[in-house]
């Protein structure tokens, strides 16, 4: 027997063997990180310098930031984004279900819709909606009738143009989500005597949500920016407001900067919302939730700091 503790007479027999000394080593130095940080910062600095030397009246941006017209444009942009997405998601779910239906008429109709709306630019669609009066002089829904030009307001053209186009994309997202659910789930609910519709609502769609939510958040942020195209139908959105204010005040380019800042603020707010929504749906399937942005920033800062060798 050559157990070391037996050999050492000085060791007290009752004491447990001491745990080995903690490793003290010089950590790997990440010189590349420092170099790339310096390069990136100097390029940014140069760009910033160029902008500061330009003939730009930066003072106009804070002056008009909370201008009434601008705020009305922001409100309209957010409102239009919500409604168009609502239309897109609702119709998208219907189209996805039709596309997967055993009924060949439904499936072909959905296929045609998606083919058509994905095949034409949304800007062109907006222009067509506002000009459809060339086909329909009047509208008659039985309970409501009007001249087309009075019926198709800029708001309605914007909503239909953006929402119907979005539905085609949402349909594909929802279809992918539905198809990601294991077939055994459908079989199990059919075996329990559930109808197709009930199976879809109670079993398939709730499980498809985890796949549907992330790209839908993406679509939402995309929509927020795509609303700037509704200038084509003369709807008063954020960009239109910025241009109006710009031509009145003579600070046209400055107002475009202002609009950009507003768009960035809005997309940031929605991105954060999306992040927490995804985190919520990851519950139960992911073993550990991903870190919140704050946790991630803190972790990155810690890695930049000079590593302490021993504690």
């Amino acid at each position: 027997m050559t157990v070391p503790t037996d050999k050492e007479p000085s060791a007290t027999p009752a004491a447990p063997p001491p745990s080995p000394e903690a490793i003290v080593a010089i950590p790997v130095r990440h010189y590349g990180r420092w170099i790339s940080a310096v390069v990136a910062l100097s390029v940014l600095g140069l760009i910033g310098y160029a902008f500061s030397q330009g003939d730009v009246n930066y003072g106009a941006i804070p002056d008009y930031f909370f201008n009434d017209q601008i705020l009305r444009g922001v409100r309209n942009t957010v409102w239009l984004t919500f409604l168009a997405m609502l239309l897109g998601v609702g119709l998208g779910v219907v189209l996805a279900v039709m596309r997967l239906s055993k009924n060949p008429v439904n499936s072909a109709l959905a296929w045609f819709y998606i083919w058509f709306f994905r095949g034409t630019p949304v800007y062109v669609q907006l222009l067509v909606w506002i000009n459809l009066g060339i086909v329909f002089k009047t509208i008659n829904l039985g309970f409501y009738q009007d001249e087309w030009a009075d019926f198709m307001t800029p708001f309605l053209a914007a909503l239909l143009g953006l929402g119907l186009n979005e539905a085609a994309y949402m349909a594909e997202i929802v279809r992918a989500g539905i198809q990601s659910v294991d077939e055994g789930q459908t079989e199990a609910s059919h075996a329990l005597g559930m109808s197709h519709g009930k199976t879809l609502r109670r079993v398939v769609l709730p499980q498809a949500m985890r796949v549907i939510v992330p790209p839908t958040g993406n679509e939402f942020i995309n929509m927020l920016k795509t609303t700037s195209l509704v200038i084509a139908v003369a709807y008063f959105d954020l960009l239109q407001a910025a241009q109006d204010v710009g031509s009145e005040s003579g600070a046209a380019v400055e107002m475009l900067f202002l609009a950009s800042v507003w768009y960035v603020i809005l997309t940031t707010v929605f991105s954060i919302g999306q992040y927490y929504l995804e985190r919520r749906y990851a519950r139960g399937s992911a073993r550990r939730l991903p870190p919140t942005p704050f946790q991630r920033v803190r972790a990155n800062l810690r890695s930049l700091r000079r590593p302490e060798v021993a504690k």
Binding site: D182, G184, Q185, A188, A191, L192, V203, Q207, G284
Partner: peptide, 24 residues
């Protein structure tokens, strides 16, 4: 019809190899 098939399945229980419980 689908509805009639579904109603007949209510009287027949089925247990699967892979359980197929609803995970949510």
């Amino acid at each position: 019809k689908d509805r009639e098939v579904a109603s007949k399945r209510r009287d027949i229980g089925m247990v699967f190899q892979r359980f197929n419980l609803f995970p949510h």
